[in-house]
Simulated assay, not measured.
Amino acid sequence: MTAEITKTFTISNNDDALIFGINDANLKIIAEKLNLKIHPFGERVDLTGEPSQVQLATQILTILVKLLHSGIQIGESDVVSATQMALEGQLEYFADLYNQVILHNAQGHAIRVRNLGQRQYLQTIKKHDITFGIGPAGTGKTYLAVVMAVAALKKGQVRRLVLTRPAVEAGENLGFLPGDLKEKVDPYLRPIYDALYDILGTEHTNHLLERGVIEIAPLAYMRGRTLDEAFVILDEAQNTTREQMKMFLTRLGFGSKMVVNGDATQIDLPRHAKSGLIEAAQILRNLPRIGFVDFKTSDVVRHPVVAEIIAAYQQKTGSN
Rank of each mutant, 00 (worst) to 15 (best):
I74D: 04
I233T: 06
D268K: 04
A217V: 11
I74F: 08
V293E: 01
V301N: 05
L252S: 07
L249A: 11
P218Y: 01
T297I: 09
S81H: 10
K7S: 15
A220D: 07
G89Y: 02
Q118S: 11
M1R: 13
V101G: 06
L196Y: 04
R119Y: 09
A110G: 06
A137V: 13
K182G: 11
S77Q: 14
T250C: 14
Y188H: 14
R211G: 15
A311Q: 07
S298N: 01
D15Y: 08
D24M: 12
I310M: 02
A25F: 02
V305H: 07
G175K: 02
A195D: 03
T297C: 01
I125N: 10
E92T: 13
A312S: 12
M258K: 06
G253E: 07
K126N: 12
G21L: 03
D235N: 02
Q55Y: 02
A31K: 09
R271I: 04
Q157Y: 01
P40G: 02
R119W: 08
I199C: 05
G156V: 10
L68F: 12
G117F: 07
I310H: 04
T202G: 04
V260P: 14
M85H: 04
E172I: 12
Q120D: 08
V305W: 10
N14C: 03
Y121Q: 12
R223D: 09
T202P: 01
D129V: 14
T142M: 06
G21P: 11
K126Q: 15
H104L: 14
L174I: 15
N286G: 04
I192W: 00
Y193L: 06
G133S: 10
L287F: 02
L200W: 00
V213W: 01
Y143E: 06
A230G: 03
E43C: 01
G75M: 05
L174F: 04
G21K: 04
S319M: 05
Q84M: 15
F176W: 10
V147G: 04
F9W: 09
G253V: 12
N261G: 15
K7N: 10
G224E: 03
A3N: 08
H109A: 13
E76L: 14
K182T: 11
R190M: 08
L189V: 12
T297M: 00
G276V: 04
T297E: 00
G224A: 06
L177K: 11
Q314N: 14
I309Y: 00
I111A: 03
Q90T: 07
L36G: 13
D15M: 11
N23S: 14
V301W: 00
V293T: 05
N286E: 10
T241C: 13
Q100S: 09
A57K: 04
T205A: 11
L252Y: 04
A167E: 09
M148L: 06
E210H: 14
M247H: 13
D78F: 13
R190E: 05
I29A: 03
L91Y: 05
H109C: 05
P270H: 01
L209I: 13
L196V: 01
T241G: 15
G71S: 09
F20E: 05
G318V: 09
R112Y: 00
R190D: 11
P191A: 06
T10L: 07
I22G: 00
D263R: 00
A280Q: 03
E4S: 15
T2E: 15
